[in-house]
Every structure is written in structure tokens, then in C-alpha cells.
Design a protein around this nucleic acid. Structure first.
Lengths: 351, 351
DNA sequence: TTGTATGCGTTATCAA
DNA sequence: TTGATAACGCATACAA
């Protein structure tokens, strides 16, 4: 009743009448043996139901698993609305897959990233950390294993490869454009300052101790031009729904802001909806500006003015960095990808 | 200049003055040695920078890699635009992570699923296939490796574990509800019938040879009620934008349909937008109905009437099934999760 | 062009 | 409670 044991290199070697090494070469170094022999080996291997060298055994022998780990701050469903993550991940996955590497997912459990045990047990040669809080335990676990790491966006770690964008500059760009149009009363809708699930107005104390660099930089970029007394609403996640609620709250204050600066497009989409909810119009009554330039921004109603960052490029570059680290490359200086303002129809001069 | 070799079980065993087996037990079978010794081992291990047993070596010895592979039909960016995938994936990831298993991503390259080589080299004990076309090469690769597999939704494979919903029944439910309200002129917006990237009206020939079971069932469920002469528009992917374009086309025919049946919520969101584009109103001028009941459906403008399927549950169940297969369980009969109609404000009787 | 020998870092069986 | 020892399935210098 016990099924036949799976064939191994040895099995097929025996069947063909050659040594194990030769069969191994047939798969990994075709130039090391005659085409005829190779053909014969592959054929009988197939007929025996041998699907090629076992990946795990190969990994042990070569001492690399041909996999890159991907750690993210939240669960997958929390990020379902966040197109930015999807695009980055897609860029990363393509790059990695193109070099015959797998992507091992390590989603965040609590809000602070993956469990340390998950990291400890994952078979990966290198890890890409996506937008983790400064003190994520998973980071310590990666260090403990001595795995090379590249971080996307945050946190800022000494001597660690990183790819990021100029969040401060981008935010400043957005705010300046609004200021230049004549806006003087602003509201800011931001995503999390801390991984504690808070939704609501931001107090100065909370602002002073953010544990997300990206949030910090974008916020400071905005406030740098609008003034530190600008009301800020914090959303626990970057979601349309939370953005809608935040914007609604901001817009119900008197005097009403004439422009809303949003830390992400997703939040801005919510803000767009909030303006509609209140019977107002964009940009006639309220200007809305986003950050990221996800594909939907162009098709929003009205098309969203936003700060463009090269998302796919970010993922691709992180992948290349990771692969280079595997090749013994040094972390080097962080790569800073360019941002730019994309002016569409959600902003205009105030009446 | 060569860095010191990483410590192994042997290294710490030597340092503590015990055998390799004992150190192994310290990590895997705490009850097999005295607490004191264990403590001492763990301590010196930490001081030597040993982060625990190497995952790859462990996998070779135990003969399972503690990872489940996840194959999907498209690239990540295309798929993640669809909240349904994210939610399913989240359910799967939680389940799997809760049992100390990793998730290895195998995104589709071409439209037919992951590359076979990707599957061949992936370290996973079991694979879950998400909504692949009937003839995906990746499926053959999984078979060749003799890996157990559970498929979500499609394709239907003999003797293979599967979790699905009653797509035909759900679609019928939706159409019947509209019919009951008095609608007689319908349009259908569907996602891909074939993995060939086609966008446009569906001919009877194309309809007759769909390679996606889910599409087939939902479509037939709709047409079963509305009649086979109902115009159908096919979108290459389930995206808001494509749905918008399709709906716009359908709505510009004369006489205009009074109701649009969409194969997914994402397509329905696009349809909602299309109605607005044309200066019409939902549901006064056109009724819209979706499928899935993603979270955004409830917050759409207006809130979307749709067919609810338990997405997270689908992912969780697939995860449990996969884990059970690993435990030597038999595939068993496919699990069919229930669907139900959620009536909200995007449907009403025609004027 | 092919074969031999050894190492990769564990787990697991069995004996002490 | 602890320690030898044999798998696990493969890659790779090196020798033939």
C-alpha cells in the first residue's frame, strides 16, 4: 500500500547506466556531455517520472535557495485597495522570476510586519522589506540570520541597500503648486504615523514621534509650505474608505479648506467621494491632490492631480538590487527615484 | 579577507560540548533535554550568532519544505486590481502562516499561468492554483513533480481537490432578481472567455469554446434567464477601466438596455462610471448588478447590488485543504461554498 | 567526455 | 537524558 518512492538522480543514473554526476550535468551543464547521452538521460528520466533535480537538495548543495523573501507591513487584504503595492510587487516579481528566482511572501500579521519566526524559517537568500515601521521585529530576525536585505521606502537602516523616492520634495511640489494657485486654507489626509490603527486628527505630540519615514516626509513636505497649524487627519491604512471619512471630517470644519493634500491617491479617491457626499464640486469648491499616480488616478472623476513616483521601477530596481547583493555586491548608497507633479483636473484656483 | 563561515549545529555543539543531536533537540524537541542544558545551548548559540537550524537543510532532512506554492493566471499588477484575489490570498496566507508554512508566489507570465520552469524549481510541498485556464502548462508541471494540488475555482481537474462557488446559480439569482423587477432588455459585461487578451463583443462561436469555467458558468447563468440573444461584452481582465469601456459600448446601442449584468464587482464599478459618463443615473435609468461582493461594493455610489461569495473563506478553505493534503489526506469531493444575493441600491424596476 | 569522492546542515533512529 | 550514525538528494572539484 505504500507508493513507490520518488525517483532521484541516483535512480535514473542506475537506469541509464551512468553515474550520478553525469545525470546532474545533463540538467545543469549540457556542455559537459555529448548531446546523445544527454538526450538518452533526459528521455529515460521522463519515462521514469523524474521531473528534474529536487529543488531543496539542490539548494542545500549550492547553498542558495534561489528565492527572495518579501516582507510587508500589513496583511494582504489590508492592502487590496492599494494599487501601489501591487505595482511594486509586480515589478519585483517579474525581475526576480526573470532570473529564475521565486518570491516568498511574508505578509504582516499584526501591523508591524511579519512574525519573526516566519522570517527565521523562510528559505530565502535575500529579503526585500516593503515599507516597514522603524522598529519591526522582523528586521531583527533578518539581521540575526545574516541575510542581505534591501528595503523599499522605509525604514532607514544604516549600511543597508534601499530604494526610495523624494517624498519630502514631492509633497512640497504638490503643496507649492496649490499655494501658487492662491490656496491658503488646507487640510491634510495622511496614512499611518504609527502602526497602532489610529484614525483621527493628529496631535503635535503624535506628529513628533512618527515611526514611518514616508509618512513623516510627506507630511513635513506639505506642512513646510502650508504651515504647521494645518489640520491633519490620520488614517490607519491607505484606503479609499478611510480617506473618505477623513476628508469629510476635514471639510466640515469652518472655514472650510479650499484644498486637501492627500498622502496617497487611494486616500485622494476617498476625498473625491467625500466632496461629492457634501454636495460640493472638485475643483470648483475644493481642490484635491494625491500622491503616487496609480493608473486609476488618470481615470478618476475628475482626473486626479498627483505626484508621480515610478512604482514599477521601484519594484524592479529593488529586485535588481537584491539579485546584485546575492552576487556579492555591496549595499551602496540608497537609490532615490525621481518624482514629478502630474497636473490634471482635480486642482484649480480657489474661487 | 574571507568572512568567517556561518555557525552550524555542529559549531554550537562543539562550543557547548554536547552532540549535534542535542542541539537539534534544543530547538525542535524541548522536552527531550533538561531545561538547564537547553538554556545553556540557546544562550551560547545566540552569542555565536547562530539563528537556528538552517531552513533548507531542515527541509532536506524532513522532506518537506513547509511552503505552499500559489499559482495565478496573470501578473500581479493585473490581478491585484481585483480585490477578490487579494482577499482570497489573504485568507490563504493567514491559514498557511498560522501553521508555520510560507507562501511561494508564482505569478502568471503569459496569460496562461506561471512558466513551467518556475513550477519545477519552486520549493513547495503542495500547490494551490487560482483560477487558471483549462490548459495551463503549469498544471502539467505540477503533475510531473507529483505535487499535491488544490485548485480554486478553475479549472476542473479529475481527482483534484477544489474549492469553488455556485457561479451558475449565483448568476441566475442575479438575473432572476432583475427579471422579477420587470427588466427585459439586458447587457452583460464579462471578463475573459479565453486567455488571449480579447476585448469586445462576444460571438456565439467564442462563447461556445470558453476555456475558463467560471466565466462560462456565470455567463450561462445570466443568459439562462435573459435569453441567448443578450449582447455580451468581453473584457480581457476584471478591471474597472475595461468594465467602463464595455458598459459604455453596451449602453450606446438602441434600444438601450435597462440593466447591466457584470461578471464581477470590479467590472460593475466601471459600469457605474459609464452610466455617469453618459449623463444617466443608477438605478433610475440603468440597473447595475455585480458579482463577488468585495468590500468596496457596499460603499460604491450608489451601493452595489451584487452576488456575495465568501472570498476570505475560499482562501482559508483552500489553505486548510492544502495542509490536509500534506498530512496525507485524500482530495475528496470539491467544496462548494454558498452564494447569496445582496440587494443594495444599484438595482430597481425600470421606468 | 565520464566517473569518484566528498560536502552541504539537518533530522531521526537507535543504542548507551 | 544524551550521543553515534545513517539518511536526505544533489553539486562539484578532481581524477580518469
Amino acid at each position: 500500500m505504500d507508493r513507490p518512492r520518488k525517483p532521484t538522480l541516483d535512480t535514473v543514473a542506475g537506469a541509464v547506466g551512468v553515474s550520478r554526476a553525469t545525470v546532474s550535468n545533463a540538467y545543469n551543464r549540457p556542455d559537459q556531455l555529448s548531446a546523445a547521452l544527454r538526450e538518452r538521460i533526459l528521455e529515460t528520466a521522463a519515462s521514469m517520472g523524474y521531473a528534474g533535480p529536487d529543488p531543496v537538495a539542490r539548494s542545500l548543495a549550492t547553498r542558495h535557495s534561489a528565492a527572495v523573501g518579501f516582507m510587508l507591513g500589513q496583511g494582504l487584504s489590508a492592502s487590496f485597495a492599494d494599487a501601489a503595492l501591487s505595482i511594486v510587487l509586480d515589478g519585483l516579481a517579474s525581475t526576480v522570476d526573470g532570473h529564475d528566482h521565486c518570491l516568498v511572501l511574508m505578509p504582516g500579521r499584526d501591523r508591524g510586519g511579519p512574525r519573526p519566526e516566519t522570517v527565521t524559517r523562510a528559505q530565502a537568500d535575500v529579503v526585500v522589506a516593503y515599507s516597514l515601521p522603524d522598529d519591526a521585529p522582523a528586521l531583527t530576525a533578518v539581521r540575526a540570520r545574516g541575510l542581505p536585505m534591501v528595503v523599499i521606502d522605509q525604514p532607514v537602516l544604516p549600511n543597508t541597500a534601499r530604494v526610495e523616492v523624494d517624498d519630502f520634495g514631492g509633497a512640497r511640489l504638490a503643496a507649492s503648486s496649490l499655494w501658487g494657485m492662491g490656496h491658503r486654507r488646507f487640510g491634510v489626509v495622511t496614512f499611518a504615523l504609527h502602526p497602532d490603527g489610529h484614525n483621527g486628527p493628529v496631535t503635535p505630540e503624535r506628529l513628533a514621534s512618527t515611526s514611518f519615514r514616508v509618512t513623516r516626509d510627506r507630511l513635513h513636505g506639505y506642512l513646510d509650505v502650508t504651515g504647521t497649524d494645518t489640520p491633519v487627519w490620520e488614517c490607519a491604512r491607505s484606503s479609499r474608505e478611510l480617506g473618505r471619512a477623513g476628508a469629510r471630517s476635514l471639510l466640515s470644519s469652518t472655514p472650510r479648506p479650499t484644498a486637501l493634500l492627500c498622502a496617497s491617491d487611494e486616500l485622494a479617491f476617498g476625498a473625491l467621494q467625500a466632496v461629492r457626499d457634501l454636495g460640493l464640486r472638485v475643483p470648483a469648491d475644493v481642490s484635491i491632490i494625491g500622491f503616487d499616480d496609480v493608473p486609476a488616478a488618470e481615470h478618476a472623476d475628475p482626473p486626479l492631480t498627483t505626484v508621480r513616483q515610478p512604482l514599477a521601477e521601484k519594484g524592479r530596481h529593488a529586485g535588481e538590487l537584491a539579485l546584485r547583493l546575492l552576487d556579492g555586491g555591496r549595499p551602496g548608497e540608497p537609490t532615490r527615484l525621481p518624482v514629478s507633479l502630474v497636473s490634471r483636473d482635480s486642482t484649480a484656483s480657489p474661487k
